[in-house]
Amino acid sequence: MGATLREIIYEIGNGIEDDRKIKAVQTGGPTGGCIPEHKLDTPVDYESLAELGSIMGSGGMVVSDERASMVDIARYFMEFSVSESCGKCVPCRVGTTQMHNLLAKIERGEATKQDLALLEELCEVVKNTSLCGLGQSAPNPVLSTLRFFREEYEARLVDGKKPKRAKKGAQA
């Protein structure tokens, strides 16, 4: 409690294999949010994590290096919520499945801007109308990756912005 994410990863966890760069840390279990590298000096406490759209949750952490696809990570965690939903309330039961399908569509490179807009709207619906904490926090991985890694989503859209490639030799 109070230690920064960086301290936990590098000092307690001994850093990343092969000295790869950290891309994001997912905290609090499958319905937590993804925190990007530039926020690693955030102390681990309830308020600071909540401010970044994540949660303390189980206290668990999943650290991804630069090779990870954030859309894939969001889809992976959504798969968890789909199978954990009890099915009592409508937004969680159907909403998690529909969010998962939209994420898979984005991942396959078949989605449009409109699909992304629907996904964002659906996240808000599921978060605010679900009966229990599972549904209310299920959209967290999507919302936080959209907040910090939006360009990764957009790059995969049929009609989205393609990322600019760095020119060869441009790096000093």
Binding site: V90, P91, R93, V94, G95, Q98, V125, N128, T129
Partner: peptide, 14 residues
Amino acid sequence: RSYRRWILELLFTE
């Protein structure tokens, strides 16, 4: 109103 419409849509797609 928006949430209620969404819930109905989810039910119809299910």
